[in-house]
Structure formats: structure tokens, C-alpha cells
Deep mutational scan, measured.
Amino acid sequence: MQGVVKVNSALNMRSGPGSNYGVIGTLRNNDKVEIIKEVDGWYEIRFNGKVGSASKSYITIVN
């Protein structure tokens, strides 16, 4: 499943599904990500070869 980031500035990509996990990357508006699965309001995603988590509130699913 594919998604597109929708933010005003930037979205942190984290090492796990929650804001208490470390930041491993930064996503910008309109970045395209691969959604692997949903976990507690977060998506596990793949972006630029990295796997991490980002809040699903800022990612829109595209077909």
C-alpha cells in the first residue's frame, strides 16, 4: 500500500510506533512512502530504504 505525507513542514520518522521512540529520519510534504502495516495509530513505513514509523494522521493512502 502506498501513502503520501501531508504536513506543513516536516514529519519525524521514528524507530517505533510512538513519540517516545528515537527519530531516524524526516519526511517532507508530498513524500511518497510504502505502508507496511498499522500499529496503534501509527504506520510502519518504508522510505528511502529505511523502515520506521510515522503517525497515520499525516499520511494519506493512495491507490
Rank of each mutant, 00 (worst) to 15 (best):
M1C: 14
M1Y: 10
M1H: 10
M1G: 07
M1W: 13
Q2Y: 15
Q2K: 11
Q2F: 15
Q2C: 15
Q2V: 14
Q2S: 11
Q2H: 13
Q2W: 15
Q2E: 11
G3R: 02
G3Q: 02
G3C: 09
G3A: 07
G3W: 04
G3D: 03
V4H: 06
V4D: 02
V4M: 09
V4I: 14
V4G: 02
V4K: 07
V5P: 01
V5F: 00
V5M: 03
V5S: 02
V5L: 03
V5R: 01
V5D: 02
K6M: 09
K6V: 12
K6S: 10
V7S: 13
V7W: 03
V7N: 07
V7H: 10
N8R: 12
N8W: 05
N8I: 11
N8D: 14
N8S: 12
N8M: 09
N8E: 14
N8G: 12
S9P: 07
S9G: 15
S9V: 13
S9I: 12
S9H: 14
S9M: 11
S9A: 12
S9K: 14
S9Y: 10
A10G: 11
A10T: 14
A10K: 14
A10N: 12
L11A: 12
L11E: 07
L11N: 04
L11R: 07
L11P: 04
N12K: 13
N12H: 14
N12L: 13
N12W: 07
M13H: 04
M13W: 07
M13R: 02
M13K: 02
M13V: 15
R14F: 14
R14V: 07
R14Q: 06
R14C: 09
R14E: 03
R14T: 07
S15M: 08
S15H: 05
S15P: 01
S15D: 10
S15K: 08
G16V: 02
G16M: 03
G16K: 01
G16Q: 02
G16R: 01
G16L: 03
G16N: 02
G16P: 02
P17F: 05
P17Q: 04
P17A: 06
P17Y: 01
P17D: 03
P17W: 01
G18R: 00
G18Q: 01
G18W: 00
G18K: 02
S19K: 14
S19H: 15
S19D: 15
S19I: 15
N20T: 08
N20E: 14
N20R: 10
N20S: 11
N20H: 14
N20C: 12
N20Q: 14
N20D: 13
N20F: 10
N20M: 10
Y21M: 05
Y21H: 09
Y21L: 04
Y21F: 13
Y21T: 05
Y21I: 04
Y21D: 05
G22W: 06
G22I: 12
G22T: 13
V23M: 04
V23H: 05
V23C: 08
V23A: 05
V23S: 06
V23G: 02
V23Q: 05
I24E: 04
I24G: 02
I24K: 01
I24Y: 00
I24Q: 02
I24W: 00
I24R: 01
I24S: 03
I24F: 00
I24H: 01
G25V: 08
G25T: 09
G25W: 02
G25S: 07
G25I: 09
G25N: 05
G25M: 06
T26E: 11
T26M: 11
T26N: 06
T26P: 05
T26G: 03
T26Y: 09
L27R: 00
L27H: 01
L27W: 00
L27N: 01
L27F: 00
L27T: 01
L27Y: 00
L27G: 01
L27V: 05
R28W: 07
R28A: 11
R28E: 10
R28H: 14
R28G: 08
R28V: 11
N29D: 10
N29A: 09
N29S: 08
N29M: 09
N29T: 08
N29P: 11
N29E: 08
N30F: 08
N30Q: 09
N30A: 08
N30H: 10
N30P: 02
D31I: 05
D31L: 04
D31P: 01
D31W: 04
D31F: 04
D31Y: 04
D31Q: 08
K32M: 14
K32Q: 12
K32Y: 12
K32P: 08
K32G: 05
K32I: 15
V33P: 01
V33Q: 00
V33A: 01
V33I: 07
V33N: 00
V33E: 01
V33K: 00
E34W: 13
E34V: 11
E34N: 07
E34I: 11
E34C: 13
E34T: 11
I35Y: 01
I35L: 04
I35R: 00
I35C: 04
I35N: 00
I35G: 01
I36N: 02
I36L: 14
I36P: 01
I36S: 03
I36F: 08
I36C: 08
K37W: 07
K37L: 09
K37C: 13
K37M: 09
K37R: 14
K37P: 01
K37S: 14
K37H: 09
E38P: 02
E38M: 07
E38F: 05
E38R: 03
E38T: 06
E38A: 07
E38Q: 07
E38I: 08
V39R: 08
V39F: 11
V39E: 10
V39K: 08
V39L: 11
V39D: 07
D40S: 09
D40A: 08
D40M: 08
D40W: 06
D40N: 13
D40G: 11
G41K: 05
G41Y: 05
W42L: 00
W42Q: 01
W42N: 01
W42E: 01
W42H: 02
Y43V: 04
Y43C: 03
Y43G: 00
Y43H: 01
Y43Q: 00
Y43L: 06
Y43I: 03
E44D: 06
E44H: 07
E44A: 04
E44P: 00
E44I: 15
E44V: 15
E44F: 10
I45S: 00
I45D: 00
I45G: 00
I45F: 06
I45C: 03
R46P: 00
R46T: 08
R46F: 11
R46C: 12
R46N: 10
R46Q: 09
F47E: 02
F47L: 06
F47N: 02
F47Q: 03
F47I: 09
F47D: 01
F47R: 02
F47C: 04
N48A: 11
N48M: 12
N48Q: 13
N48G: 11
N48R: 11
N48E: 13
G49L: 04
G49S: 06
G49T: 05
K50H: 09
K50E: 09
K50P: 02
K50M: 14
K50R: 11
K50F: 10
K50G: 06
K50I: 15
V51F: 09
V51S: 09
V51H: 08
G52H: 02
G52V: 04
G52C: 05
G52P: 01
G52M: 03
G52E: 02
G52A: 07
G52D: 03
G52K: 01
G52Q: 02
S53N: 14
S53C: 15
S53G: 09
S53H: 15
S53V: 12
A54L: 10
A54N: 02
A54P: 01
A54I: 15
A54Q: 02
A54H: 03
A54K: 01
A54D: 02
A54M: 07
A54Y: 01
S55I: 14
S55T: 09
S55M: 15
S55V: 12
S55R: 15
S55P: 15
S55C: 15
S55N: 15
S55E: 15
S55H: 15
K56T: 10
K56M: 11
K56D: 05
K56G: 07
K56E: 06
K56R: 07
K56A: 12
K56W: 02
S57W: 12
S57E: 15
S57T: 12
S57H: 14
S57R: 15
S57C: 14
Y58F: 14
Y58V: 09
Y58L: 09
Y58Q: 11
Y58R: 09
Y58T: 08
Y58M: 11
Y58G: 14
Y58A: 13
I59W: 00
I59A: 00
I59R: 00
I59M: 00
I59T: 00
I59K: 00
I59F: 04
I59G: 00
I59S: 00
T60E: 15
T60Q: 14
T60A: 11
T60P: 08
T60H: 13
T60Y: 12
T60D: 13
T60N: 11
I61F: 05
I61W: 02
I61S: 04
I61P: 09
I61G: 03
I61E: 05
V62D: 10
V62N: 07
N63E: 13
N63V: 13
N63I: 13
N63Q: 13
N63T: 13
